[in-house]
Design a binder for these strands. Structure first.
Lengths: 150, 150
DNA sequence: AGTATAATAAGATTGATTCTCATTTTCGTC
DNA sequence: GACGAAAATGAGAATCAATCTTATTATACT
């Protein structure tokens, strides 16, 4: 998947929100911009720092909820149970995560087409064997990053 | 990995806790028994229901913390951010999770040796390419279970 | 049995997240 | 370019899983 420019992404988001009859306001745009700059999932607290100017935390959480509900961003929880948000895969491409055991940093990782295909087959097989209709998969690689490795 | 009997698991846990100079008390044993019956990760609230008799929630959390710290159980967070606990892999074998998108149920899944080897190679390659020393990996398959598929 | 140490129980506390509601902004219309 | 309806925001209250505190109880060792 060729990556979209920042401008194209905002355009895609605007259209998606329009379909959901939701306005693409300044606050919501600020969240998308912040997540665009970050190259991995970020917590609400981290996003507050990434966004220029003061953002009320309650408003930020509502922006995140709206964007999540309309499929613009995805939400998952890190090892400490804190929610982390990132742009949805239809905007930035399917990818996985490399997590540092020490500092907790999370980076996006895209597999090669061949690797992703193999993983996809594997996952389908697993779902079938248990009677599930597979809708997706998540792979997290855990390790110690170069900086933490002393 | 051949699976251990319930009795053998309690024995292993006892030894592991002894090494950590921690007692294997009734409350801690009850948690292990409950997780042994459950065939997948369970939340603190669910474990309260699985354990026979009333268990103070604060005590349960401390038992879980002690067992987690000594490596007897593992902890992760589900899509709603609540913590789920399960017996550690050295007790029940390395495995992955099949998660139902609808009801949230989580089942353990073990891959074949061949599949697991291939996955292991893949994650090693990913870690190397990013300068990480890989320590593990997590694969979650998402889908809709037979019951929820109507 | 007696003592020192660890574990438990009950409730208070914390902290991320959500809810409430009054105020403000936006959009389509006149 | 103001008007009214609907949507969004902001400030603080409320929620709830999880942790902490401390007094009490149980356990291991002598």
């Amino acid at each position: 998947m060729e990556s979209l420019t920042s401008h194209e992404i905002h355009q895609q988001v605007r259209e998606r929100l329009a379909d959901a009859e939701v306005r693409y306001t300044t606050g919501r745009r600020a969240v998308v911009t912040a997540l665009l700059r970050a190259r991995g999932p970020r917590s609400a607290g981290e996003i507050v720092d990434l966004v220029v100017g003061a953002v009320p935390i309650s408003s930020l959480y509502r922006s995140l909820a709206v964007l999540d509900e309309s499929g613009v961003i995805g939400k998952h929880h890190d090892v400490d149970g804190i929610a982390r948000f990132e742009l949805a895969e239809w905007l930035v491409g399917h990818h996985h995560h490399m997590v540092c055991d020490r500092c907790g940093n999370v980076e996006d990782v895209a597999l090669s087409g061949h690797e992703e295909d193999a993983l996809h087959e594997l996952v389908d097989r697993v779902g079938d064997s248990l009677g599930y209709t597979v809708s997706g998969h998540v792979l997290e690689v855990e390790g110690v990053c170069a900086t933490c490795a002393v």
